[in-house]
Write a protein that binds this DNA or RNA. Sequence first.
RNA 1: GCCCCCAUCGUCCAGCGGCCUAGGACACCGGCCUUUCACGCCGGCAACACGGGUUCGAAUCCCGUUGGGGGUGCCA
Length: 465
Amino acid sequence: MVAARGSAIRARFAPSPTGHLHIGSARTALFNWLLARHEGGKMLLRVEDTDAERSTREFVDLIFSTLEWLGLDYDGEPVFQSRNAERHIEAVQQLVAFGHAYCCDCTREEVDGRAAARGGPPGYDGHCRDRDVQPGPNTVVRFRTPDEGMTVVHDIIRGDVSFPNETLEDFVIVRSTGAPMFLVANAVDDLDMGITHILRGEDLLSSTPKALLLRTALGSPGDDLAFAHLPLIVNQQGKKFSKRDGAVAVDDYRSRGYLPDAFVNYLATLGWGAPDGVELRPTSEIVELFDVASISKSPAQFDLKKLRNFNGDYIRRLPLDEYKALTRPYLDDVFDAMAPLLQERVKALTEGPAMIDFLFTDDGELAFDDKSWTKVMVNGKDLAVAMLDIAIDGFETLAPWTAEAVNDVVIGYADDHEIPRGKAQAPVRVAITGRSVGPPLWEAIELLGRERTLARLRRVRERIS
RNA sequence: GCCCCCAUCGUCCAGCGGCCUAGGACACCGGCCUUUCACGCCGGCAACACGGGUUCGAAUCCCGUUGGGGGUGCCA
């Protein structure tokens, strides 16, 4: 590895606890982990919680548990960036003292106004560089970037990437609230933690020159850190994978029955391939073969079908007992949720399972009872179309996703339009369960979840139009 | 607008100047196995974005074009 010769590798994963662990972050974590384990170095964890507005303890816990589920362990105790705030401030004071940073009291409007007036590119113009602004309530601290020259990022994957310094504006490193921002906190902590390798998403490549400049100003020799910017994981349109493209959170896959080893194995194929071309292999072998320099430069599409294929393979390899133990909770969850409703209407214990079979059917495979279909979807077509549209429309943005809220959408509409409640819910029921009789619908819909519910409704809606 | 990155089958990965009539995996399509499905096995479809160079020889190197993406916050 380029830098850090002679010393052990120290990699880190630095998630910000502002949401669930995203697939892309998980892969970043994985690659850092693979590097550390392959090289026999350290894998450190740092929680970047400097955005007090959006960071929560719940997300911290969730990220920890997701990492654990994936089997990505770390060395030492996790570092909470917010606890280093004093260190960050200290570093900033030093920067100001040495003239690397200065206070600025320009408002957003003033900055934009001047940019518009000079007709140049948007961004800060260095207005306060020599105004000797004193710290105050509406004052931020900006880092002074060089006006000329180049800053070069040595990237293990991409080679040298050069940025003209003139395109770098004097960026804010301390908010007017006095809270240091990501870039400084990051640079200071990486220095303090003795990080030698940073593997992160390509979306951070453009901010790397700033990080480097900051690091140098902070007194680092500048060649003691190696970067590798990982290609993004993208959707079918080639854009950054986001919520609209399906499940983005790793714990979604966890709850949907994917095995951690299969998930990790699949993730490892996104941007990396073993020299021998074998894709399905145990994590231990991946650790052994992993090489940062051989990571692909181009973005990778997340392919659910391939993940599923991998998962199926891992499931087949499970000892039967383990498969049974792992599957049972999914059976139990559905039954537990529906049990109180079933208990009221079964006449024999054996009848329960048949009443909730639709909850175990794939959305596209659901079979429809002929009589129910004719009665509701054919003879009552107009109402069916109307109700399905109402349900689809209402469910798309429904929050929270609860039986009660679901009820309000359908029954609320029925009452408003004086449609008998029973008639109004029938099309939804048939679309969801395949029959016009069954246990209470809203609880079942809550259990099914938004995505699957909508899939079923839309399927029927298309079929009858 | 400006800066930066990327460019091989539908998708992921291989290929790092001759071994390429481009290989593997997923998906897809046939067939076999099989009570169905799945698995498995056999076979098939399918790509070097374009244009210039360099070279005896280019998917591989260089330049340009085009296309895609990322960044451009008092988010991280």
